[in-house]
């Protein structure tokens, strides 16, 4: 699923919306001092709740295991267990977030990470603040305030995130292998293509297996004026050829 691409592009070239409001997206834009627009994708309530559940389970299981083992050590074991309970309750999130690129095991599993509002890696003070204020979010019972705040904030922040200036975003994933393109002879596009058009053509070829034949030909008919060809199947082949040509020989290797 090449969802890590095209986030910004489709927004830049988004169709003019019928309403006065801009087209809705869950992206969050940050402009760096160099004038580069960064696209962050804040994560909403469902993946975050699942990540939290995973972390909670891990902590509970770890503590249970520790207490069973430490029970052999008598009084010393109890003391050690209490110290470890303190550490695991209050420092589990902070240590993982700061030392592991903003990802606790639960967040890692769900593909999330914590960053500052400007996209920089989360630091000690922000992480401590957001995790200490977790106890405000829990009030009055079971994360009521956190849920309401998370539902109402455009970047899905809970109160701790707002106070600490942090953001939970989807981690950018790198594609190690591209899906294979259908066989076609590489060719040059009949006219210079914009970047988003090039991407769309490559995506069309890459996703050909997910699309039905009728739909593929329907899509190819849209651009048939380019090829001066009434036959949809020929247009489709031509689009594949252009995609091969755009990717070039280096990337266009069958995987």
């Amino acid at each position: 699923m090449p969802c890590n691409r095209g986030c910004g592009l489709s927004q830049t070239f988004a169709p003019p919306a019928a309403a006065a409001q801009p087209a809705l997206d869950s992206c969050y834009q940050v402009e760096t001092p160099e004038g580069i627009d960064l696209q962050l994708r804040p994560a909403g309530i469902v993946p975050r709740a699942l990540a939290y559940t995973i972390d909670l389970l891990i902590r509970v299981l770890t503590l249970l295991l520790l207490f069973t083992l430490l029970a052999f050590l008598g009084r010393f074991g109890t003391g050690l267990g209490l110290i470890l309970t303190f550490l695991i309750t209050w420092w589990y999130m902070v240590l993982f977030e700061v030392l592991n690129q903003g990802r606790t095991p639960g967040k890692y599993w769900m593909g999330l990470s914590v960053v500052h509002d400007d996209g920089t890696p989360v630091g000690w003070s922000a992480s401590l603040l957001r995790n200490l204020l977790r106890f405000v979010d829990i009030l009055p019972f079971g994360y009521t305030l956190g849920l309401l705040s998370c539902l109402n904030h455009p970047a899905f922040k809970r109160l701790g995130d707002i106070a600490a200036g942090t953001l939970v975003v989807y981690r950018e994933t790198t594609l190690f292998s591209r899906p294979p393109l259908p066989e076609a002879i590489p060719q040059r596009p009949p006219l210079p293509l914009h970047l988003d058009e090039q991407r769309a053509l490559i995506a069309f070829a890459e996703r050909h297996e997910q699309l039905s034949t009728a739909r593929r030909q329907e899509l190819a008919t849209i651009v048939s004026p380019l090829f001066d060809d009434a036959d949809p199947a020929a247009s489709e082949q031509a689009l594949y050829g252009i995609a091969h040509g755009l990717l070039g020989p280096a990337l266009d290797t069958p995987s």
Binding site: C3, A17, Q21, L24, P154
Partner: peptide, 23 residues
């Protein structure tokens, strides 16, 4: 005419878009 940005999203992101839409 769509008032949301159409791009391939993961399932989680699709739900996030739903929250934004409801908001």
């Amino acid at each position: 005419d769509a008032t949301v940005v159409i791009r391939p999203r993961s399932q989680w992101e699709a739900m996030d878009l739903g929250i934004r839409l409801a908001r």
